[in-house]
């Protein structure tokens, strides 16, 4: 054993030197290489995960917004339709009312016209009658003046007129 070790040139102090070398290297690399690299890798991993989550939520929001927009659009168009319907209804109502009123007015006018015509006519009748009575009176006077008294004449005229 001793001889083998001697053949290979084994010296405890050299072993120790190598052990110290390794420990120094271990300490320095741990502080300067492994920790910073692993930290950066970890941070990057987290960042990627975070951005993936963000992207997902953004996509979700986009879909939601799209849905919202469509809903709003549908609602708006429905409202517009409703408003249009109402407007049409009220317009119809107004037109109908106007129609109604117009027809009423017309009837009234017609009635009034009729009435005034009637009144005119009866007035004319009256006038004609009176004129006729006068005419008859005059002609009767001329025809029967000599026979009948004035009083009889008048009675006769009145009777005749009534019979007419």
């Amino acid at each position: 054993m001793e001889k083998i070790l001697a053949d290979f040139g084994i010296q405890p102090i050299l072993l120790l030197a190598q052990v110290v070398n390794f420990l120094v290297l271990l300490f320095i690399l741990k502080k300067l290489l492994y920790q910073p690299i692993l930290k950066v890798l970890d941070e990057r991993k987290k960042k990627i995960e975070q951005s993936l989550i963000d992207a997902q939520s953004i996509e979700l929001k986009l879909v939601q917004t799209e849905e919202d927009r469509e809903k709003k659009l549908a609602k708006a168009s429905e409202e517009a339709k409703q408003i249009l319907d109402e407007a049409t209804k009220s317009a119809n109502l107004v037109i109908e009312e106007a129609h109604l009123k117009a027809s009423k007015d017309m009837e009234e006018i017609l009635q009034k016209g009729q009435e005034s015509i009637n009144a005119e006519r009866s007035k004319m009748h009256q006038e004609i009658r009176e004129e006729l009575a006068d005419l008859i009176e005059v002609s009767l006077e001329k025809v029967a003046g000599k026979i009948l008294t004035t009083k009889d004449q008048k009675e006769l005229v009145q009777k005749t007129i009534k019979q007419l």
């Binding site: 290979f8 040139g9 084994i10 010296q11 050299l14 072993l15 190598q18 052990v19 070398n21 390794f22």
Partner: peptide, 12 residues
């Protein structure tokens, strides 16, 4: 290529 070095590492 020196057994001192490898033996040091192995022992450690």
């Amino acid at each position: 290529s020196d057994l001192n070095m490898t033996l040091g590492l192995a022992l450690l």
